[in-house]
Design a binder for these strands. Structure first.
Length: 462
RNA sequence: GGCGCGGUAGCAAAGUGGUUAUGCAGCUGACUGCAACUCAGUCUACGCCGGUUCGAUUCCGACCCGCGCCUCCA
């Protein structure tokens, strides 16, 4: 039985999709005005693992992740660069897709863009006005009337009175209530704008997600996810907009990933302490980054550090050593009883709110069984790769992983030649020469393993 | 101030009312010419103080510390 922690209720709940066997999931994606950072990577990878597991369990998952390509930050950045904003967004959308592919994040079923849904957005705003949940102001903006929506604050556990009391929101003459938020922004001069019944303008930040999600998945759908800082106000406002507009429950299960920290402080744009995915990938194998992200539970905060990445590297080395060393067997009679046990343990872990650290522990136990050697080894190797695939890891050739990361110190050809030299020295029992070669290679970051089948090598994490 | 989360062995990170988490690091053996890989064994824990209990790291209460959201941010 799959249990998922629901941010809305604050408890783990049995997951029951609206339509048996099908899952509709919407995740808030990027605002494309800069490169993705590790925080984005965490959300991407978390929901990628979730999608992979749900599919592996037989669900037909419709995974929608939007792209926000209209926003003040986008316009500002495009202005600074002196380029059309669409050029800027195209560039960063491409960069995002590159980053995702590197991290083995499977593409969502659909990636709707705000600019492609202006009509839906306008319709929803109009509906909200018609129902009395929104009002156009004289400045060309349209605001949401939060006092009118009874459940306002139910996701983030806050009430309007308290927020008003501690409000850090500027009083705006155009708003009935300082907490009211904008659905449609009247255009300033020179800005990209779309026509609307309230004058030229563009969507507010939250309305696009309400419009796109309900458009793609229906008025009510199964799972809505996103980063930790979207719970308020973004997701709270989405609920207010969608439920007021449709009169139906918006989302059954809300899922929020944990924060990525640096030096125990949240990694964020505003603090400027963020690492982009591509920066990190210059130093680490993408799979190492992915492993780092799934080595903690998706809801807990993780701390980004060189040490964390190094540990992830070492953990993967263990798996790939296992895969490399596993002797292919001629006996094609896999013993499957032990596989069933590992599979059950893996699924039990994943069924408990996608507990990837526990699932990885199962894989390590499985790896030990393989390393021990036995008649069921071939089947166990297959299982290790199969379960790894559900987590999006262990799909490389072991040699590709272990021998990758060429820093330009020494080429594979040079290494191979030195291994031959050393082999000759060893057959002459010239241990001094053999050790000299090995020490030389260690200096270059290359470790030799003398196995039964001969000597293999791997590049060591620095 | 409001709401919420967390403090587990050297590091990272799960979990449980009583029995080995797991990975890396350490130690001891095996394997090896020596190593590495690997295997076997092993040492380091559950912030502090009370309470409930036959028994609590796990439940309850207080306290200390750290963090997040409340403002654009994944």
């Amino acid at each position: 039985m799959l249990q998922i922690y629901n941010s809305l209720t604050g408890a783990k709940e049995e997951f029951k999709p609206l339509i048996e066997g099908k899952v509709g999931m919407y995740v808030c994606g990027m605002t494309v005005y800069d490169y993705c950072h590790i925080g984005h990577a965490r959300v991407m990878v978390a929901f990628d693992v979730i999608t992979r597991y749900l599919r592996q369990q037989g669900y037909d998952v419709n995974y929608i992740r939007n792209i926000t390509d209209v926003d003040d930050k986008i316009f500002n950045r495009a202005n600074e660069n002196g380029e059309p904003y669409t050029e800027l967004t195209d560039r960063f959308i491409n960069a995002m897709h590159e980053d995702e592919r590197a991290l083995s994040v499977l593409p969502p079923n659909s990636e709707p863009r705000a600019t492609e849904h202006i009509d839906n957005i306008l319709n929803m705003v109009q509906t909200l006005i018609d129902k009395g949940f929104a009002y156009p102001a004289s400045n060309g903006d349209v605001y949401y009337r939060i006092d009118k929506f009874e459940g306002y604050g139910k996701l983030s556990n806050r009430n309007i009175e308290e927020m008003r009391a501690g409000a850090r929101v500027e009083v705006d003459e155009n708003k009935e209530n300082p907490m009211d938020f904008v659905l449609w922004k009247g255009a300033k001069t020179g800005e990209a704008a779309w026509d609307s019944p309230w004058g030229p303008g563009r969507p507010g930040w939250h309305i696009e997600c309400s419009a796109m999600s309900t458009c793609c998945l229906g008025n009510t759908f199964d799972i809505h996810g996103g980063g930790p800082d979207l719970k308020f106000p973004h997701h709270e406002n989405e609920i207010a907009q969608s439920e007021a507009a449709t009169g139906e429950k918006y989302v059954n299960t809300w899922m929020h990933a944990g924060a990525v920290r640096v030096d125990n402080e949240k990694m964020s744009k505003s603090l400027g302490n963020f690492f982009t995915i591509r920066e990190v990938l210059e130093k680490y194998n993408p799979e190492v980054v992915r492993y780092f992200l799934i080595s903690s539970h998706y809801r807990s905060a993780i701390n980004y550090s060189e040490e964390s990445l190094k540990q992830a590297q070492q953990a993967l080395e263990r798996f790939y050593n296992t895969l490399r060393n596993a002797q292919p067997s001629n006996e094609s009679v896999p013993v499957v009883e032990s596989n069933t046990e590992f599979r059950i343990r893996f699924e039990t872990a994943m069924n408990d709110d996608f507990n990837t650290p526990e699932a990885l522990a199962v894989l390590f136990d499985l790896a030990r069984e393989i390393n021990r050697g036995g008649t069921s080894t071939p089947a166990q190797v297959e299982l290790l790769k199969e379960l790894g695939e559900t987590l999006g890891i262990l799909q490389q050739e072991p040699e590709a992983f272990l021998q990758g990361g060429d820093t330009g110190e020494i080429s594979a050809e040079q290494i191979e030649q030195l291994i031959i030299d050393r082999k000759n020295a060893r057959s002459d029992k010239d241990w001094a020469r053999a050790d000299e070669i090995r020490d030389l290679l260690i200096e270059k970051g290359v470790v030799l393993d003398d196995g039964r089948e001969g000597t293999t090598w791997r590049r060591q994490s620095s």
